[in-house]
Every structure is written in structure tokens, then in C-alpha cells.
Amino acid sequence: MSASLNIIGELAYWQQTGIRVGAGLAAVLLIAGTLVYLHLFKLVSFMQSRLGPMEAGPFGSLQLLAEVGKFLQKEDIFPRKADRFVFAAAPFVVLMSTFLLVVVVPGGPDAWFIDTELGIYLAMAVSSISVIGILMAGWGSASKYSMLGGLRATGQLIAYELPLILAVIGVVIQAGTMNMQGIVFAQAEGSIFGWDGIGNPYILTQGVAFLIFMIAMQAELTQAPFDMPIAESELVSGYMTEYSGMRFLLFFIGEFATAGVFSAVAAVLFLGGWYIPGIDPNDNIMNVLGPLVMLVKIVGLTFVVFWARFTFPRFREDQLQKLAWKVLIPLALANIVVTGILKVAF
């Protein structure tokens, strides 16, 4: 994408759109694939003193293709009493939110999908769409486990949407813009008490917000310790129980791609996005290096997500609601107040 940047401006609108859609698909699917292989197959296996897949390809690197092939071959089963349309559409709705989410994430000064002033506002808005998909899956399956899972997921996702958004507001106040590019530039050009060696990644000033964002993100992704909706030891697989084959694969991709995309958003908001200290952020080379920097940050953040996921037991439904409403939201609100006061004061 980056090499052709100068050409991009000269292309017709539909050609530009084509390139951006292609790049978006690649960004979501490639990142999801990388994460699944690197974290789920390998690092998590190492945490459990095992090797993970080793047979398909060198060190099992082609295992993912084998898995996808397996899922595609499987029969697409509909439960007899399922609401067929709702059941069939649910995974696409879940996946849609992921693909809509990725468009706001910038990868370099000119490497962006859409550059809108609404930026993070749009991201937070579209991330809620997955709730509808999950509720559709839970209801449409006509299964008690799915239904309990779907209802739990809905309650949880709505509860954790709030701290997620409130955590972001602190960053928005500090950056003074909701544009994702703007946030990156604000961090790149910022300074810590006058020292601008590494810019000012907001994790330093918004540490509390970062923590809240990561916890809420974990909950939004329904990863342990917040995986009550899936809870394989009691609800079999929650809202995904009745799915098989292709549609299960979509849920699966959705889960891991969303982990990647949310991490990308977190990287932009708190870790400085694509900029490298010492290189002029408007330099054309950043269009090549930027996406790589982003990838490294995404992998780092998702590692934390998976690390926690495979270490912690899960909260009970009422406990995680308590955590959201009684701890995270007041904390996030306090963070906003403090940030606002400091913003006005300095």
C-alpha cells in the first residue's frame, strides 16, 4: 500500500477503494493469522510446557491453513428449531464489526483507510455492533446453553463498553482531537517535561486509562477472565455451541481478529501508534516502517491478552458486572476529571 502512495492519489475513486478494502482485509486476516499462530499455537503452548502444532509446515506454521481447510469441509449444521436467517447471519454481523473497526486505524502518515475527524468515536460506535451479532447467535440457535451465553455476553459487553469509552475520553482530552492520525501526531510531537526524545506516548500520562482500556478490552473480547459467555466448562461453548464448519470459523476469526484490531486501537491511543522516535513522522519512509511498528505493538499487546487469558480463572457474571460498574467506571470517570483539570491547568 505504502509504496504506491504517490500513485494512490492519482487513481480513480473506485480503484482507491478497491486497494483500501483489499488492504483492510489483509490487515485483519493476516494479523488474525499471525496472532493465532504465534500466540495461541506457540507461546501459549510454551506456557504449558508443550510445543503446539509441529507437523504442518516447518514448526507447524501451516497448521492454520489446515484448520481452515478442515472447517470449510465440515457440514454447515442448522439446529432444527433454529431461526434460520438469524442463525446464519449472526457470524457475519460479528465479523462486520471487526472489519469496520479496522478502518480507523492508521499505519503511517499516508497509510490510512479512512481519515476522519470522528476517528475513535466511529471505532467505539462500530465495536458495539458485535453485541447484536452475539445476541442473534444466542437467540437464533434455539439452545439453552446458547441463550444463556448470548444473554451473558450482551450484559457483559454493554457493561464494559462504558469503561472502554470513558478510558478513551482521557486520551481524547489530552490529544484534543478524535482523529486517530491526530492522536498519533499529538503523541509524536508531544514532550515529557520538555524532553521530546520519545515523544509522549499517552501510556505515561494516561496509565490508569490504559489499564482500564486493557481490562475492558479483555472483557469486550470475551477472553478469560471475562469469558463467562463462552465458559466452556459450564455452557459448553456459550453462544457458539450450535455452530459448526464455516460459521464457527467466522466466529473464530472474529474473536482473534478483534483481539488484533482492538490492540491496534490501544496501540494508537496509548503507545504512540506507528511513529518511531527520532524519525520525522511526515517522512515518506514511515509509510513502510509504520505498519511494521504497528504490527510489533499489536503482537505485544495481544500477547498480554492471551497471557492473561490462559492464566486466570473466570469471573462469575455478577462479579464481573460489579467490577465494571463499581470499580472501572468510577475510576475512568475520576481519570477524566483529573485529566480535564490538568488539561486546563497546564
Binding site: 506456557m47 510446557s49 497471557w307 492464566t311
Partner: peptide, 12 residues
């Protein structure tokens, strides 16, 4: 807990 899993990962 994170230390235990992380430590096992590094040892592996």
C-alpha cells in the same frame, strides 16, 4: 499467576 505461566514459557 502471570509469573508462573510466563516463567514456564521462558523455561520452555
Amino acid at each position: 499467576g502471570l509469573g508462573v505461566t510466563g516463567g514456564t514459557m521462558l523455561r520452555t
